[in-house]
Design a protein around this nucleic acid. Structure first.
Lengths: 197, 197
DNA sequence: GAAAATGGCTAACAGTTGTAAGCTGAAAAC
DNA sequence: GTTTTCAGCTTACAACTGTTAGCCATTTTC
C-alpha cells in the first residue's frame, strides 16, 4: 500500500475511533456533529468529506464494524461451549464481556436500532438477523426442532440477551450478577418451552 | 379554574401535542428543538419557558403521560380477558392496537429507554416496571408460581412484546399478522417453560 | 523529471440554536 | 378602582452547525 493510501486509512480510522470515543451514556451518535468528530480526530472540519459523504455514512461504517466484532466474538464463544460447558451460560458470559469491553459499540447498535435513520435501522436489524440465524442453526442441529419453533426461539433469546445488555450498561458488577442469573432462567424457560411445543 | 389558568393549560397542552405530532420514524424527541416545538404550538420561542424549564422537562411529562395511557389500556385489556379469552392473545391485540393508534407515544418510550438522558431512561424504566409488576401479579395469581419465576417470566414477556411492537411500527398490516403469531408462540414458550421449572 | 491527483488546510457563508432583557395588556388580588 | 401578577411578545446575542470555494504540498503517475 502506498504511503498516501496508508495515511488516508490512518485518519479514516481516527475518525471512526473519535466517534466511538465520544459515545457515552449521555451522548448518542446522532447527537455528534461533524465538526466535533473532526476536532476529536485532529483534522479540519472540511477534511471530513475526503473520507465520508456525511455523518450517516460514517455511522453505517461503525455499525457494520461493530456488528462484525460482536458476531466474531459470539462465534468463538460457541466454539468454547462446544467443548464442554452450557451453551447458554457461555453465550451470556461472552456477551456481557463484549459489553464490558466495548460499551460504546453496543450503545451504538442499541440506539440506532430504533433511531431516526432507516438505513441505520436496517443495518442493525441485519446484524441482529445474522445473529439469530447463527443461533437458530445451532439450536436446530442440537435439539432437532421445527424451523418455525427454532426461529421463534432464537429470536426470543437474542432479544432478551440484547435487552439485558442494555440494562447491564448502567450497572455495577454486583447487580450484573443478579441480572445474568435471571437471564439464564429466562433463556432456560424458552429452551424448555420450545421443546414442549 | 380561572380564565387565566385555563388559557395557560391550553397552550401547555398545545406544546405537548405539538411535540408528539412532530415525532415520526425520521424524527426523535431529542432531535426536536425548543424553537421548532414552540413554532408548531403557535407561540414565541421564549414563551416556552413559561411552561417548562427546558425540553427535558417537557419530555418527561410526555413519558409520564404516555406510560399512563398505555397502562390504562392494558388494564382494560386484561379485564376483557378475565371474562373469556386467552390472556396472551388479548394482551397482544391490545398492545398492537395501542401502537397503531398512538405510534408516536410508543416511539417516545421506545427511544428514550436507551436515550442520552438518565432521567428519561429511568422514567421509561419505571413505566416498564409498573407494567411488569401488574403482569406478574396476574401470573402469580393464575398459575401459582415462585416470585422469582413469575418475575422472570413477566419481564421476558414484556420485553418481547415491546420489541415486537418496535418492529410492528414499520410494518404493513399483513406482515404484522405474521409477527403477532410468532409473538404468541414465543409467549407460550415462556408460559410453558416457566411452569416446567 | 513534468504533470496529475489528492488529502488537508483556511476563510467564509447562511442558517439555526438556546436564552437573556425588557415591554405590554389583560386577569387576579386587594 | 387601584395595584399586582404574569403569559406572551419582540429584540438581541453569542455560539454552533453543515457546506462551498479555493489554495498548498506532497505523493503518484506517466
Amino acid at each position: 500500500m502506498g504511503i498516501r493510501a496508508q495515511q488516508k486509512e490512518k485518519t479514516r480510522r481516527a475518525l471512526v475511533e473519535a466517534s466511538f470515543n465520544q459515545l457515552s451514556a449521555e451522548r448518542s451518535f446522532s447527537s455528534l456533529s461533524l465538526r466535533e468528530v473532526a476536532r476529536e480526530a485532529g483534522i479540519a472540519p472540511t477534511s471530513f468529506y475526503r473520507h465520508f459523504k456525511d455523518m450517516e455514512e460514517l455511522g453505517l461504517t461503525m455499525v457494520d464494524e461493530g456488528g462484525l466484532t460482536l458476531r466474531q466474538l459470539m462465534r468463538k464463544g460457541r466454539q468454547r461451549a462446544a467443548q464442554g460447558g452450557s451453551i447458554i451460560r457461555v453465550s451470556i458470559e461472552t456477551f456481557l464481556e463484549f459489553i464490558d469491553s466495548n460499551p460504546n459499540v453496543f450503545r451504538l447498535l442499541l440506539r440506532e436500532r430504533s433511531g431516526t435513520s432507516a438505513a441505520f435501522r436496517s443495518a442493525v436489524q441485519r446484524e441482529i438477523e445474522h445473529f439469530i440465524a447463527e443461533l437458530m442453526e445451532y439450536l436446530q442441529a442440537n435439539a432437532g426442532l421445527t424451523v418455525e419453533v427454532a426461529h421463534a426461539q432464537a429470536e426470543a433469546m437474542v432479544i432478551l440477551v440484547f435487552s439485558a445488555g442494555a440494562e447491564a450498561l448502567d450497572m455495577t458488577p454486583k447487580k450484573r450478577k443478579v441480572l445474568a442469573e435471571r437471564l439464564v432462567l429466562q433463556l432456560r424457560m424458552i429452551v424448555k418451552g420450545g421443546a414442549a411445543l
